[in-house]
């Protein structure tokens, strides 16, 4: 069941468009903001609200990489995986993160602290290599800097 707040927030998105289904991606993000991820049940609820089939909503949910269809950690690490970061040493960072956290791309640590996700390009190539932890962007990364930054996210 969508909460009243979720329902209201989604309805506020719908009014921007001539058709309700145009707000489907926003609706999924609303649910995700409140719950951290989008469950099967949430997909069905959003579908009912927007007069779509659950399959259609599922198609949208799986199309966009920012919609999480499984539970994620408390903090999301988006490590930029684009060419400008890669030639500036992103691979070393990835190896370091994988060893340090014991997870690869798309995985969550056992203590549910971090989820590691590749980002196509964070659009901050001037600071390469970069990552975003939750809403904070960090540039000119080194393994040592990485260690220090992750400490700030309990």
């Amino acid at each position: 069941m969508l909460s009243d707040t979720e329902r209201q927030e989604i309805e506020r998105e719908i009014v921007h468009y001539p058709r309700a289904r145009a707000a489907v991606a926003e609706a999924l993000m609303v649910v995700q903001r409140h719950r951290g991820w989008v469950s099967d049940e949430a997909v069905r609820d959003v579908a009912a609200l927007l007069e779509m089939t659950p399959d259609e909503v599922e198609g949208i949910a799986t199309f966009y990489s920012m919609v999480f269809r499984q539970p994620v950690g408390r903090h999301i690490i988006h490590l930029c995986d684009s060419v400008s970061c890669w030639i500036m040493g992103q691979e070393t960072l990835l190896e370091h993160l994988q060893r340090k956290l014991g997870i690869g791309f798309g995985e969550t640590t056992a203590d549910r602290r971090f989820t590691l996700i590749p980002a196509g390009c964070l659009g901050a190539c001037d600071l390469a290599p970069v990552m975003r932890v939750d809403d904070d962007l960090y540039g000119h990364l080194t393994p040592a800097k990485l260690d220090e930054i992750l400490e700030r996210y309990p």
């Binding site: 058709r19 289904r21 489907v24 991606a25 927007l50 198609g59 949208i60 199309f63 919609v67």
Partner: peptide, 26 residues
């Protein structure tokens, strides 16, 4: 109106972008 993408590179292609605004797979 502002419309936010949700992480799909192909949506920069104009017909994909419009599909995305309409609430379809981009």
């Amino acid at each position: 109106e502002l419309r936010l993408g949700a992480g799909a590179f192909v949506c920069g292609e104009e017909t994909a972008l419009m599909a995305s605004i309409e609430g379809k797979r981009g």
